[in-house]
Design a protein around this nucleic acid. Structure first.
Lengths: 251, 251
DNA sequence: ACATCCTGTTCTCTAAACCAGAACGTTTAT
DNA sequence: ATAAACGTTCTGGTTTAGAGAACAGGATGT
């Protein structure tokens, strides 16, 4: 939703921050050109951000500082789901030897809260804070399957159904069918949809009210996950981890 | 350094963000009172931040969103030191079974880039992004000992020598003596200075130019760390980890 | 059931301040 | 040596931020 009375100056500052994030360290002139804002304005905004620790100047270039990590880390630490699930996701990674993840939904996108690597884990370029479309991952499908249908439609309206690969879900009917399956089985599967040769299995974490809080997953190369694993051994482990988290959250 | 021509509107936004971080979810009126800014201004800033994903509204309250984790995670991932040191710090934690940390200096303070827990690790409330005074931890001392003296003085001038515990370093002479020792030995020790009964050992990570990039540490309860461990076995492991990181960074 | 007191939100108008553009000092490149 | 490009400072005109008042909605207490 757009702000009714947006603060334009703040929006300019946020634009600068996002540009610095995408482009990495920049000079004043470069930012001025890219954003079509005068040099003096860019300079004023950057020095203001700098004096508050959000931006640093090194070697004549401005870049984002670790203040964002401080705030982000603080927010994450204040989330009950994270605090409770963190040890379970780590155990899951250690036991399976694979990559385990924790995702929550925010503003219609999935946000990875953490990932834990087991000894043999594949090295995907996911990281804490990364955003992803919900319909393209097992984690996201586990969440979507447990949201009210109205909310799911809202999300699709807003975020669309971008196809990451030819195997991706492309239509609403297809999605709703898949989500029905997920609800029935209790867990979601991604068999090479996001990345060829990668199999993921995810289970939702729900509050006692039924509201979905997030999802836990394990990702592994297809070479190490037989069909049997994917539909028996792995679901058992992931569901069990999700269940432990639910119990600890709901007391 | 203060901005010459600060953007006051941006400063107001940043004030709101910091207040939301410290106080947690808040209503408009509460923020308006706390910061002595009119309700309409607070409302305009919050909805602007909301429309860009930095702030969320739930149950009639505003709170910070995971956008900060996204930006912070992105910044961290773009740091070569983190990418190279992360596996080493995890190994260190796994091998010792204790808590291993990675710290960098920013604006005169230490910032934890990560922590890794071994099987028996104590559970300190450090987290990625947390800031700390440099003179009160082994990690910070390892860094200070390898900064130019002028920079160390700058930092002390700016950040002071706050005493966390009676054992903390309280004077400049004391600090300089300790830093001389650290330089001589090649590693820094914290024997209960930050927390009674906690022993930490930290080694600096330096670029080939000699510039210090950060520090790696292991923290363990005194009951599990004999004097012998503290001065022989542990230094060997931590220094070795730091050395591997240095080699990988400097090719 | 009603009245009162909270909220959060919208609106207007004026004082505030943001910022384009020009000018300056400094560094880098030719 | 000269030029070009950069970051920084300055000022005035114009945008706009925001105090305060008013409104709507919900909660609370009587």
């Amino acid at each position: 939703m757009d702000a009714k009375h947006p603060v334009r100056t703040t929006e300019k500052t946020l634009l600068l921050i996002e540009q610095l994030m995408e482009a990495g360290p920049c000079g004043v002139t470069e930012l001025s050109n890219r954003l079509d804002i005068g040099k003096s304005a860019v300079h004023n905004h950057l020095t203001t951000l700098q004096s508050h620790g959000y931006v640093l100047k090194t070697d004549g270039e401005y870049r984002l500082g670790l203040k964002f990590l401080e705030i982000g880390g603080h927010i994450r630490k204040s989330m009950e789901l994270y605090e409770v699930a963190e040890p379970e996701v780590k155990s899951l990674a250690a036991e399976t030897g694979e990559l385990a993840n924790l995702l929550v939904e925010e503003r219609g996108l999935g946000v990875y809260l953490m990932r834990a690597k087991g000894d043999d884990a594949v090295d995907l370029d996911t990281y804490a804070g990364l955003r992803t479309n919900l319909h393209t991952t097992a984690l996201g499908k586990a969440i979507l399957a447990n949201l009210p249908k109205s909310r799911v439609e809202e999300i699709i309206d807003h975020r669309g159904l971008e196809q990451k690969t030819p195997k991706s879900i492309g239509t609403r009917e297809e999605l709703y069918d898949v989500l029905d399956d997920v609800r029935e089985r209790g867990y979601a599967i991604d068999d090479g949809e996001r990345l060829e040769g990668l199999r993921c299995l995810a289970a939702p974490v729900k509050a006692s009210s039924g509201e979905v809080l997030g999802a836990i997953s394990v990702s592994a190369p297809a070479s190490r996950v037989s069909d049997e694993d994917l539909y028996e051994a792995l679901p058992e482990r992931v569901l069990s981890a999700a269940n432990v988290v639910e119990l600890n959250i709901n007391y």
